[in-house]
Design a protein around this nucleic acid. Sequence first.
DNA 1: TCAGGGTCTGACCGATCGGTCAGGCATGCT
DNA 2: AGCATGCCTGACCGATCGGTCAGACCCTGA
Lengths: 195, 195
Amino acid sequence: MVRAVPDTHGEILAAAARQFTVTGYRGTSLQDIAREVGCSKATVLYHFANKEALLAELMAPAIEVLRSLDDQLNGLTGAAAQEVAAQGFVDLAVRFRQEIAVLRGEFPELLCQPAFAHIQQISDRLRDALAGHSDRPGARIAALVLLAGISEACAEFVDIPDDELRPALLTLARRAVEPVDAPLPHPPTTEDKDC
Amino acid sequence: MVRAVPDTHGEILAAAARQFTVTGYRGTSLQDIAREVGCSKATVLYHFANKEALLAELMAPAIEVLRSLDDQLNGLTGAAAQEVAAQGFVDLAVRFRQEIAVLRGEFPELLCQPAFAHIQQISDRLRDALAGHSDRPGARIAALVLLAGISEACAEFVDIPDDELRPALLTLARRAVEPVDAPLPHPPTTEDKDC
DNA sequence: TCAGGGTCTGACCGATCGGTCAGGCATGCT
DNA sequence: AGCATGCCTGACCGATCGGTCAGACCCTGA
């Protein structure tokens, strides 16, 4: 195990991920992160422009995958959209469990930051697809319950291996989602809310 | 509409509830609450010992109902426990939407406060009942997804009337929960986690 | 040998946080 | 009139926050 290059950048990133998971973004100070890494707070701010940039770099891979799922969903309707949305989101959630745990709870405030400007709309479209683009309250409610619940489950069940968690969630999603009979084209609704 | 007594206490409570819902407990300062009420920060701290006491009084009714549901669940097993848990929690979640929205996200940290010491164990038992006291990962996962998802849905769909939200959630819960075939007695497992 | 760039740090900044405290100001009882 | 009580406030406190900055340290290439 050669440790030629210290890779402080990566260590800060990893420490921040751990701390954010436990105490949340707001609840974790740059001092806390520096202490865990074993460097000064100034060093953290040398490697990252500010606290928000740290979070953005931490979430970047997950957001990229979410964005590609959104592309995949574009144009699909009805049951096909439901299946792709369910499968895609379960995969994503299981894979990026830690990132989801980081965002957990501070979602509403964090979404207001410019780095996460788009993911509210993406998750709205994802929810819409999972509801089969239906306007029925039952379908919309089921879709939200599923997305939120799956996120929470992935953040909480850190001890369950991916291969066990993924099929369980997918089965649940397929059972819980309201089936759509006739696939009718429907523009995705993006309900913006003031931030 | 006579306004003989100003009832500052109640106004502070109501303002705090609104602010906590939007910006979270941590994200809301006593100054923010005082500003909305139209009094000084010192007045807020005259009516409430500290910020935590304000939150505790805000959550008290919801916690009381949760506790009584826990009593109701005590001794029930199998499908009976599942049905009572589902119905009881949906009722509770719909009724105390705002309180749930307040807690949303800051759950893990807030549970460490003495005022909320017991509700982690209660929610563990509730989840266990909803899973039909089964050890199967699928059942445990489904129960968690449901509890977390229902909470989130209630916090988010503030515009949907109770009478519409409640049956939709209950139908979803019954469809999503894993049916238990043979009701077997099983002691509730309380998995404590370090805070 | 020296210059320069990358890395890191302690000291410091203004802002804001939750909370304390002495005192002002009504009201009502004696 | 005098006094006690309840309600409220401005001024202030120590702690902590995210962020800045000048300079120390080390390595490397000329």
